Simulated assay, not measured.
Amino acid sequence: MHTRLSKCALEVDDSRAFWAHADETTDVNAQRAFDEYWFGARSLARVEVLLTNMRARFSAFPSALSVLHSWQHMSPETRRAICHWHLQLTDPLYRCFTGTYLVARRSGPRPEVTRDLVVAWVGQQGPSRWMMSMRIQFASKLLSAAYSAALVTSNRDPRPIGMPHVPDEALEYLMYLLRETEFEGSLLDNPYTSSVGLEGAILEERLRGLPGLVFRRQGDLIDFGWRYHDLRMWADVNLRSEERRLAGAAL
């Protein structure tokens, strides 16, 4: 358990700025990002906080960062989903909150949540040394991040729990990322897809329609057929195809 989330929520726009400037070979330091206005007119102290979180969320996955750096034409829905999944991958509290707690609330008789409920939940998850002020701060950041990810649809209590739209390109990105990442669960049962409402038959139906892989089920036998060797190759083919499509539309 760490406390990075207490200072930085989902930060979709700042993540986009980080992807634009950083790749696996970039010397990322706060002074350079501050001088070059990577995150706009932010203080050096705030830039340091942002970079600490961006490194944990994206630099820890070099293949993913390389892909995100070169992905110029990304839909807002895809960007939101990718930021959400990378925060889940690197923050166990957010992963449990969005992949377990909100999923259970969504399927319950009242698919909504309040700040008081989340404060109480944080108290059950975190160390006993966390004071109430820390629990409230975490609850606020969790709800802010979930709202930015469209997992809750209001920033006022009671907050209905939603299911964001996940484009095919975003789901393919996640599958290829998880394929080369050690994580708890399986490709069909994990907090990343569950958090956005993709579970069971719904998830399997979406997987069957993805052009970047071949999914088959026969009884208890499941076969994942990957059309590309890894995430980088998937991106190389798909991003070039998208660029050609956009160039043709501009003519």
Rank of each mutant, 00 (worst) to 15 (best):
G219H: 05
M175D: 04
P191I: 00
W234F: 14
M175Q: 08
I202M: 10
P211M: 04
P191T: 01
F224K: 03
G185K: 03
A247T: 12
N238H: 14
M233E: 15
L207D: 00
G209L: 09
A250D: 11
L251S: 15
Y173T: 11
L239I: 14
T181S: 11
R206H: 14
I222W: 02
R216M: 09
A249N: 06
S194L: 04
R216Q: 13
R232K: 13
R240W: 08
A170K: 00
R240E: 15
L203C: 05
S194C: 05
G248I: 13
E204M: 09
E180L: 02
W226L: 11
G197T: 01
S186P: 10
R179F: 02
T193K: 02
W234G: 10
D220M: 13
T181L: 05
R179G: 09
A247N: 15
I222C: 06
I222G: 08
W226I: 12
E204Y: 05
G197Y: 00
L174G: 00
A247H: 10
A250N: 13
Y192N: 01
L203A: 03
L207M: 15
V196M: 04
P191S: 08
R208N: 07
F215G: 09
I222H: 05
R227K: 14
L203V: 12
L213P: 09
D220C: 08
S195M: 02
G197E: 04
L188H: 01
A235D: 07
T193L: 03
L171Y: 00
E180A: 11
M233K: 05
T193F: 07
E199L: 11
L251G: 15
F183S: 01
S195T: 03
S194D: 04
V237M: 13
L239N: 07
R244Y: 12
L187T: 06
F215C: 11
L203D: 02
W226F: 03
E182Q: 12
Y228I: 12
D223S: 13
L213W: 03
Y192A: 05
G209A: 14
A247M: 13
R240L: 14
S194Y: 00
A201V: 10
D230F: 08
E204N: 08
A249S: 14
R206A: 06
V214R: 14
V214A: 13
A247Y: 08
P211N: 03
L198H: 02
P211L: 09
A247V: 09
L188K: 01
E205P: 06
R245V: 14
A249H: 10
S194W: 00
V196R: 00
E184P: 04
L213C: 10
L251A: 15
W226V: 05
L210W: 02
P211E: 12
E199M: 12
Y192V: 00
D223I: 14
Y192F: 07
L221W: 09
A235E: 08
R232M: 12
L187K: 00
